[in-house]
Design a protein around this nucleic acid. Sequence first.
DNA 1: GAGAAAAGCGAGTAATCGCTCAGATAATAG
DNA 2: CTATTATCTGAGCGATTACTCGCTTTTCTC
Lengths: 225, 225
Amino acid sequence: MQRSIEPRKKPRQARAAATVEAILQAAAHILEREGLAALNTNHIAERAGVSVGSLYQYFPTKQAIMTEIIRRKRRRLVDAITLSLQAGEGESFDERLDRLIAAAIEHQIEWPRLARNLEIAEAFLPLQEETEALNQALADKIGCFLGHQGIGDVAVATMDLIALVRGMIDAAGLAGETDRTFLAERIGRAARGYLLLPQAAVKTRSMGHSKGIAQRRGSGPTHRR
Amino acid sequence: MQRSIEPRKKPRQARAAATVEAILQAAAHILEREGLAALNTNHIAERAGVSVGSLYQYFPTKQAIMTEIIRRKRRRLVDAITLSLQAGEGESFDERLDRLIAAAIEHQIEWPRLARNLEIAEAFLPLQEETEALNQALADKIGCFLGHQGIGDVAVATMDLIALVRGMIDAAGLAGETDRTFLAERIGRAARGYLLLPQAAVKTRSMGHSKGIAQRRGSGPTHRR
DNA sequence: GAGAAAAGCGAGTAATCGCTCAGATAATAG
DNA sequence: CTATTATCTGAGCGATTACTCGCTTTTCTC
């Protein structure tokens, strides 16, 4: 039932490498311009200027193509975050936070529909593990940064910050915003509020049927199963 | 090319109404437990304990089923937001904000994968108009609430707040969190930071190739096309 | 150059899945 | 009861599309 999503074979000649690039390029292009529904293997091959046969030499399934695109994008994100943290070494907390936010915006806002369609495509791919790993990698880097700031629960804070930043950038991107500075300023306010405002004393205003065990506080997010 | 997404006919007998409910129930169940990829009409019918034929008596297309689920969920959201604002009339800003956040959490966290998959499914449905209308309805209510707080650009603020809150709740839900109080407190900090922290003077630290026209400021989000 | 290996081709196959329709069954009316 | 209307059934049609395979062309090796 479940077919492979791993690449089939490595290209050995230059033209083969070019073919692989053309395929990925074409798929990304279709995702940005025509949407997920238009993404079928015949169309990808056509747009890439190769035959379906060639496509299937390097990717055993259509999902493998999407997987590779997602993996590359993730690699770029991790790199960008890493770089932005390195670049800001020695700077103030505020400056470094701004760098982080700017890097995230730059990464996500350039091709907003591609970004969104990739997130959607993930729903059809068996990538939960890799997603966890990515989040872990980001959490490590960002958590290390936050750790120096006396933030309490670093794991939770990291998850929240990523979610907050992603949510706001995605919404802005889909709304057609291109002014990165304005967006960065707004995200910065939310992030600073999250990180710096005092934690409210836990008023136990009961909040509906709280059917969970009162776990949590300083042990990281609970993962299902 | 585009088929209808409106219900086909109203059930007139009790058992027919039960059939419709069973179908919607089954579809939602599949979305929560098995994911979007497993959502096909044969499977829905099977799980609902009816035949495909019956399914197509009430829903002309598969998309019509998803549309109905989404519409119901939206109706519940608007109702919950409205109620939470009414309930808090006369209370302080802080209390009302907390009510809003609690309502959003209650709405989104119960079936987190269903919520996520519905958002994804929307990408395949011709619901832009309704989505705009929903956002407008929420923006009106929330904007009216925010308007009394001296927030500058209410439209942008509303969009940002919704994105921020949704992002954080979704992430927490998918991570398996069930402690609503803890989550509400964190979201509250981010929201308050966004709303109450002073807008930073616009430092023109150039942020990459800012290829957009410097539009924006106080005129609401720019929508594509 | 010859031979081998890699890359490319694209018509065709097979599987999936949305959806129909001809007829069976149940509820309701008179 | 009969007639009528509402509901339900599920085998299978049709369209889409992921994927294969036998063959050709290009590049590499010696």
